[in-house]
């Protein structure tokens, strides 16, 4: 008797011999593990933030100036950091994509070395660099630009420098992925047609790189929202970000309900930023498809 492998009438047991182990048993440990140690803690936070079903903590967060200021400050710093990071990442990624093999190698190494050094150590290095007797101040004084050390550490500027440094690799990689697929002959074509470099860039290259810009901006922004180590080490308590406030509620104030509510707010803000990313990507795809039809 001969049976085709694809014969559906074949008994299930005989079929089983030809299938890899069933998906259920492979995936179940991961789902169970994450359900217990990842999803449950997050749900627990939601539960703690709503004692007896009362939304009092949320009301407090959205009506007290202190909390609103911290949320506002978190947005402000994240936005500045995102703009600066993407602006610096753009030419860097461009050089990686179109600057030749040697440039690609050197720039990739420069990008990946800090990527592999822990966030904590890099914040530590920035403390050393930015302190009053640090390299940056020494350099500025030696160059005659300033005559007295300027205060860089424990200021918003210090936090921004540290955060840009950490987020830069995350912003460069999506930009590079998009840019290396852009055909530079399109720019040549635009210049042959009489467009200036700037006009060609604005009308041809930049629109093509837009998906990369969007991806890196959203990645930088969502990561920036949750930063804790860098602002705690390089910033002053006055310019606190939301993550530090959450930690403070659990460590110092021992107000778990309020801390949990703040954590839920941060989680929702992060999810919203990602939702925005999905929507923006869908809009771009639609634009491209419509162009393709035209």
């Amino acid at each position: 008797m001969t049976v085709s492998l694809h014969d559906r009438s074949m008994p299930a047991k005989a079929m089983g011999r030809f299938r890899p182990p069933s998906a259920f048993w492979l995936i179940a440990p991961a789902i169970l593990f994450l359900a217990f140690f990842f999803v449950f803690p997050l749900l627990k936070l939601v539960a703690i933030s709503l004692p007896d079903g009362s939304a009092e903590h949320y009301r407090q967060i959205f009506t007290t100036p202190v909390f609103l200021r911290v949320i506002g400050e978190t947005f402000r710093v994240s936005l500045i950091v995102t703009v600066v990071t993407v602006a610096i990442a753009y030419p860097y990624a461009y050089a990686m994509a179109h600057g030749g093999r040697a440039a690609l190698l050197v720039l990739t190494v420069a990008l990946l070395i800090p990527f592999w050094v822990s966030l904590l150590l890099r914040s530590f290095s920035w403390i050393v660099l930015l302190q009053n007797t640090g390299l940056i101040n020494d350099f500025l004084i030696a160059a005659g630009l300033i005559d007295r050390p300027i205060r860089l550490i424990r200021t918003p500027l210090g936090v921004i420098i540290g955060m840009v440094h950490i987020l830069l690799p995350y912003a460069v990689l999506p930009l590079y992925t998009v840019m290396k697929k852009i055909d530079l002959r399109l720019m040549e074509a635009s210049s042959i047609c009489g467009a200036s470099w700037l006009r060609g860039f604005a009308r041809v290259y930049f629109p093509l790189s837009l998906p990369g810009v969007m991806a890196s901006a959203i990645l930088a922004f969502t990561l920036a929202l949750g930063f804790y180590i860098t602002p705690a080490l390089l910033g002053s308590p006055r310019d606190m970000m939301i993550a530090q406030m959450i930690a403070g509620q659990f460590n110092e104030q021992l107000n778990f309900g309020l801390g949990a509510a703040l954590a839920v707010v941060l989680m929702v803000l992060t999810a919203m930023a990602f939702g925005l990313f999905g929507a923006a990507r869908a809009a771009l795809q639609m634009r491209d498809r419509r162009k393709g039809e035209a």
């Binding site: 990842f38 803690p41 936070l45 949750g226 930690a247 659990f250 941060l266 992060t270």
Partner: peptide, 12 residues
């Protein structure tokens, strides 16, 4: 997920 959120959730 922001690590600080995970940290306090796991702590509880």
């Amino acid at each position: 997920t922001p690590v600080i959120v995970l940290a306090v959730g796991m702590y509880m």
